[in-house]
Design a protein around this nucleic acid. Structure first.
Length: 250
DNA sequence: AATGTACGCAACCGCTCGAAA
DNA sequence: TTTTCGAGCGGTTGCGTACAT
């Protein structure tokens, strides 16, 4: 392994890739003192790194039992489900994937999965002409106070960014279940797409809250993958929109 | 063989949150 | 109650590598 190029900040703190020696020092220090107290770690370990860098290196790379290599289909399934439920809460998602880090999950989502979704959307757009529709907000007044009180609407990063990729995800993820209005059959009053989106936000927030409280009671789901049919989150027969993803990914 | 491009991953940055003073 | 500071998180960037031209 070649020594990576050295970079230092103005304070002389080393940046850039980690060397084997630094890894060794970090590992040794954590074995001795345990995790935490990151601000003390660089001095204890004799590392010329900032505490953030040390923490990240440990969490994403050096920690025992970290799984490397491709994600299994089960894991990809779970990522999709949890992303729909939780949004870009990578640490929460990773918490349900033993051996995977938030950074891994985030990278995987941002590269491979998003591309697959984008490709699918491009295929769709080849065949369907999506015409912009005028939006009549007069009918939406009644919803405004509801929107304003809905924190998830304001802060949910998967929804509030004017980002084409997020829009595509929202379109796919919010593909309605049987009996609901389809996104392609957008209503004529021009409001329903907004309200249904907002309702979804509420649902997602409620489900996320349920996850949190469930976690607190049970301390992490033992193995969601194998128990999902019994899981309160993914009960059989309840459409969570996931079935749609299988087709997207193939 | 050389060059350009796309992709994946590791790492950094800036922000928020919560605890302690 | 306010301020300070450490910890943690998500977004983004940069680099190395694989692949295409």
């Amino acid at each position: 392994m070649n020594t990576p190029p050295m970079m230092c900040t103005s304070l002389g703190v080393r940046k850039g890739s980690w060397t084997e020696e630094e890894d060794f020092l970090l590992r040794k220090c954590i074995q001795k003192y345990g995790e935490g107290k990151w601000h003390l770690l660089p001095a204890r370990a004799g590392l010329n790194r900032c505490r953030k860098s040390c923490r990240l290196r440990w969490l994403n790379y050096l920690r025992p039992h970290i799984k490397r290599g491709d994600f299994e289909p089960d894991e990809v399934d779970l990522i999709f489900r949890l992303h729909k439920l939780l949004g870009n809460r990578w640490s929460l998602i990773a918490g349900r994937l033993p051996g995977r880090t938030a950074n891994d999950v985030k990278n995987y989502w941002n590269t491979r999965l998003l591309r697959k979704l984008n490709n699918k959307c491009r295929e769709i757009s080849k065949n369907e002409i999506i015409r912009p529709q005028t939006r009549n907000f007069s009918n939406a007044k009644k919803n405004i106070s509801h929107w304003c009180n809905n924190k998830s609407m304001i802060t949910n990063s998967t929804l509030d960014k004017d980002d084409e990729r997020n829009k595509e995800i929202v379109n796919i993820c919010d593909k309605p279940t049987a009996g609901e209005t389809t996104s392609s059959s957008i209503d004529n009053d021009g409001v329903e797409w907004w309200t249904s989106l907002l309702e979804n936000c509420n649902e997602i927030e409620e489900e996320a809250a349920a996850v949190r409280s469930f976690d607190e009671e049970n301390k992490l789901l033992p193995n969601l993958l194998h128990e999902e049919n019994n899981s309160p989150l993914m009960r059989q027969g309840e459409s969570d929109g996931w079935d749609d993803f299988s087709t997207v990914l193939t």
